[in-house]
Simulated assay, not measured.
Amino acid sequence: MQQHKFKVGQMVSYFGQGTLKAARGEYTVIARLPADNRGPQYRIKSKQEPHERLVSEPDLSLA
Rank of each mutant, 00 (worst) to 15 (best):
E57W: 09
L60N: 02
Q17P: 12
H51C: 11
Y14A: 09
E49K: 04
P40R: 03
A22W: 01
L60Y: 06
T19S: 14
Y14Q: 06
K5W: 15
V12C: 08
E49M: 10
M1T: 11
E49W: 13
A63T: 10
I44M: 08
P34W: 00
Q3G: 11
P40A: 12
G25L: 09
I44P: 01
A22K: 00
A31T: 06
F6A: 01
A31I: 11
R43H: 09
R43G: 02
I44C: 05
S56I: 15
P34A: 04
H51T: 12
R24G: 13
N37T: 03
T28M: 00
V8L: 12
V55G: 01
E26S: 08
V8H: 13
Y42W: 10
P34S: 06
H51Y: 15
D59V: 15
N37K: 11
E57L: 06
Q10M: 08
H51N: 11
L60E: 00
S56W: 10
G16I: 04
Q41E: 14
F6T: 00
Q2W: 15
Y14N: 07
Q10I: 09
R38L: 14
Y27G: 02
S46L: 06
R24D: 05
Y14V: 12
G25M: 12
H4L: 04
H51P: 07
V55E: 00
P50G: 04
M1P: 09
G39K: 05
V55N: 00
K7H: 06
N37C: 11
L54K: 01
M11S: 12
L33V: 01
S13Q: 02
